[in-house]
Each structure stands twice: as C-alpha cells, then as structure tokens.
C-alpha cells in the first residue's frame, strides 16, 4: 500500500471515504439552511441572528467547518498532486493551504461565538 505523508490521512482509501462522508455532511447542512430560509426571509438580519443564536447551530456549523476543511484539503491536495510536479513548490503550496484552512476554521469559530 502506498502511503503519502501530505495527504489528509496518508491513505488513499481513507481519504476517499473522508471526502465522501464530509460531502454528505455538508449537503445535509445546505439542505438545513435551504429549509430554514424557505420559512424565514433570507434578506432579514434577524433570521440569521435567530438561527445562529442557538448553541446547537453553532456546534453544527463548527462540525461542518471541520468537514469543509477536510474536504477542501483532500480536493486541493489531489489537484496539486495532479498538476504541480516540482516537489519543493508543491510542498510549499500545500503548507500555505493548510495554514489558510486552519485560519478559516479559527475565524469561523470566532464569528460564531461573537453572536
């Protein structure tokens, strides 16, 4: 079995599964939002504040953000592996993306808990 030090799990099959599970989690979240905003006006700030005021919604959203980070990382890793051949460049870009994604996660948590 080929293991890879920079891929999400270092294992192709596990990456494959994580990519799909995270996708399903995010689709469920999109459906949740779509159903909520079918019943509440999307252009009103109170709709958003009401929804994200609930602790369960904050927790769900953080879980979705974690799934997003994993999903994005697997996707970007695949694309970098496909198109960027010089090892040093690929590793530099991968590192940059990891830092950026970690930053998004922290930013997202900060946004949610300042409501």
């Amino acid at each position: 079995m080929v293991s890879n030090v920079t891929s999400y799990s270092g294992n192709g099959l596990r990456d494959w599964l994580a990519q799909r599970l995270s996708a399903v989690v995010m689709v469920a979240y999109v459906v949740l939002l779509a159903v909520y905003f079918a019943m509440h006006p999307v252009a009103e700030q109170t709709s958003w504040q009401q929804l994200f005021g609930h602790v369960w919604m904050k927790i769900i959203t953080v879980i979705v953000l974690l799934n997003l980070v994993v999903h994005a990382w697997i996707g970007i890793w695949t694309i970098f592996t496909d198109y960027i051949k010089p090892m040093w460049l690929r590793v530099c870009l991968e590192l940059a993306v990891i830092l950026v994604l970690a930053g998004y996660l922290v930013w997202g948590i900060d946004i949610l808990w300042s409501v």
């Binding site: 997202g108 946004i111 409501v115």
Partner: peptide
C-alpha cells in the same frame, strides 16, 4: 471564495 463567504457570515451576524 471561502474567505468571502466567511466575511458574509461575519457581516450578517454582526
């Protein structure tokens, strides 16, 4: 566009 979407969330919840 993740940062733009996060910014949007920040504005709408701010």
């Amino acid at each position: 566009f993740i940062p733009l979407m996060l910014w949007g969330l920040q504005q709408v919840l701010g």
